[in-house]
Design a protein around this nucleic acid. Structure first.
Length: 479
RNA sequence: GGUCUCGUAGUAUAACGGUUAGUACAUCGGGUUUUCAUCCCGACAACGCGGGUUCGACUCCCGCCGAGAUCACCA
């Protein structure tokens, strides 16, 4: 079955990891079945509307590689894809309900409604608006809200994640269809749009599960076939038992991009948070996800967001791209992440640096702090040498002597490549009688003054003979 | 409070009546000529509680406890 799915965000801000999954899963289902993915902007709440949010949403989806077949930019047969531009359509649909007596104009002032609600709360009875229906609703005219006229009864339905559901008549109420300002509510608009756009799979957060009976009533009133309903459990914040939201500091998806997380890793992590295919596979490409995804294996309990695992996956992806696509391909992903001092160096040089450092990266932004000494001479910090756990046993004279021997050995006019350098280092080990821990630590710190760096021979190779010797000499002089 | 949902190690999960309850992240140890990381090896660590059903229950049923969602002219 070709699935027509949709992602229907409201443009009230950025997309964060707590809610992007409701874009990923519909996308996977659409692609797996050769169906269609629709992007629809639900901008009926003018108060919460945020300028530029739509672009942010589009940007996020594109970065993750989630393209849509219908929606803003690409258009489609059900244009427009902004609910604010579809008001005539909703009015047309609501008229059918008005005509059939399944909806009514409700002139009751908000204060009066609040009063009803308060009364119910005091009496500890559930507040149901249908018990307060106005007796003689006026003919509808703009400026008056329209409500659905609920018929209290039981509903049963199947939720692809939650299973068989059943509710009693007490959950059905006269929900608002059209607001005072003329815009439709989500409750109404999404039903109309899904029907007009031919949506077959409705995937959304579990928070909509409770209102599903009201949607069912609406489908029924319109004589519409129910789509497949799929509730997605929440992603929980790292602390506490709350769903991850902006208030818990949920970062936007694009913020991770700016911090050097790869879209492959992000997609991989998010898709596997609350879903698995039953195998022990951890790393999935987008195509593999499309292939193995299945709705019935979506977890039905909330999943806690764990950034550590995301970063681990990111490291896996960094290595995978390097191994499978080469240094150049990985380099192309790093352009914005180098320290400023790298700007004056050639791409070729940066690729070399990347080639020996990539397996230490958790995110691309690690490049900033991990590669500086490849581009600028580090500040000499004698304490770092003297206090090193292997070097503190040596006297300054011994250190100086070792340094001199190293300089001599490395000055010999022979080839300068990783293999010959390793030979030299081994010779030095033999000549000085020192342990690797001592000799290598000394040279490593003297040429980098960094807390860590790649293998010594590789580092020296990339740095070049001239720079390596210059740095060793500078250190020797300042002891 | 009503209605609904959920409950395997710290985290994400596997199991679908019979396993020493598997895997990954994290943590802790060890190995790979220095560091950090990669990689490899190892360790720690879980079926919320109580009743049933059954020869046998993480798996089925009931109760309890715990957690969450919802009860808007927000989505």
């Amino acid at each position: 079955m070709k699935a027509i799915t949709r992602f229907a965000p409201s443009p009230t801000g950025y997309i964060h990891i707590g809610n992007v999954r409701s874009a990923i899963y519909p996308y996977l289902v659409a692609r797996q079945t050769g169906g269609k993915m629709i992007l629809r902007i639900e901008d009926t709440d003018r108060e919460r509307y945020v300028e530029g949010a739509t672009e942010l949403i589009e940007d996020t989806l594109r970065w993750l590689g989630l393209d849509w077949d219908e929606g803003p930019i690409v258009g489609g047969p059900s244009e427009p894809y902004f609910q604010s531009e579809r008001r005539e359509i909703y009015l047309k649909w609501v008229q059918k309900l008005l005509d059939s007596g399944r909806a009514y104009a409700d002139p009751t002032p908000p204060e009066k409604i609040d009063e009803y609600r308060r009364k119910c709360n005091e009496e500890k009875v559930p507040f149901l608006y249908r018990n307060f229906r106005p007796e003689n609703p006026p003919k509808w005219e703009p400026g008056i809200p329209i409500r659905f006229k609920a018929e209290p009864k039981e509903y049963s339905w199947h939720d692809a994640v939650m299973g068989d559901m059943h509710t009693g008549p007490e959950v059905l109420d006269d929900i608002i269809l059209i607001k005072r300002d003329g815009y439709p509510t989500y409750n109404f608009a999404h039903i109309v749009d899904d029907a007009e756009m031919g949506v077959t799979h409705v995937m959304r957060g579990v928070e909509y599960l409770s209102s599903t009976p009201n949607y069912l009533a609406l489908y029924e009133a319109f004589g519409l076939e129910r789509p497949i309903l799929i509730s997605l459990p929440h992603i929980l914040a790292p602390q506490g038992n709350k769903k991850l939201g902006k208030r818990d500091g949920a970062k936007s998806v694009t913020e991770y991009r700016d911090d050097g997380v790869l879209p492959e890793a992000m997609l991989n992590y998010l898709a596997c948070l609350g879903w698995n295919d039953g195998t022990e596979q951890e790393i999935y490409t987008k195509d593999e996800l499309i292939k193995s995804f299945s709705i019935d294996r979506i977890q039905n309990s909330g999943a806690r967001y764990d950034e550590t695992k995301l970063l681990w996956l990111n490291g896996q992806w960094i290595r995978r791209i390097f191994d499978e696509q080469g240094a150049r391909a990985l380099y192309d992903r790093t352009v914005n992440f180098w320290p400023e001092v790298a700007a004056s160096y050639s791409e070729e040089y940066r690729v070399k640096v990347l080639s020996i450092i990539y397996d230490r990266l958790k995110t691309m932004s690690d490049l900033k702090t991990m590669t500086e000494y490849f581009f600028v001479d580090p500040d000499i910090d004698i304490n770092m040498l003297v206090e090193n756990k292997f070097l503190k046993k040596l006297s300054e004279a011994e250190i100086e002597e070792l340094l001199k021997m190293s300089i001599n050995e490395l000055s010999e006019p022979k080839e300068w490549n990783p293999e010959s350098l390793q030979e030299k280092l081994n010779d030095l080990l033999a000549k000085t009688g020192r342990k690797p821990a001592e000799l290598f630590s000394l040279i490593r710190i003297a040429i980098s003054f960094a807390p860590f760096s790649p293998a010594l021979n590789l580092t020296m190779d990339v740095l070049g003979r001239e720079t390596t010797l210059a740095r060793l000499n500078a250190v020797a002089r300042s002891i």
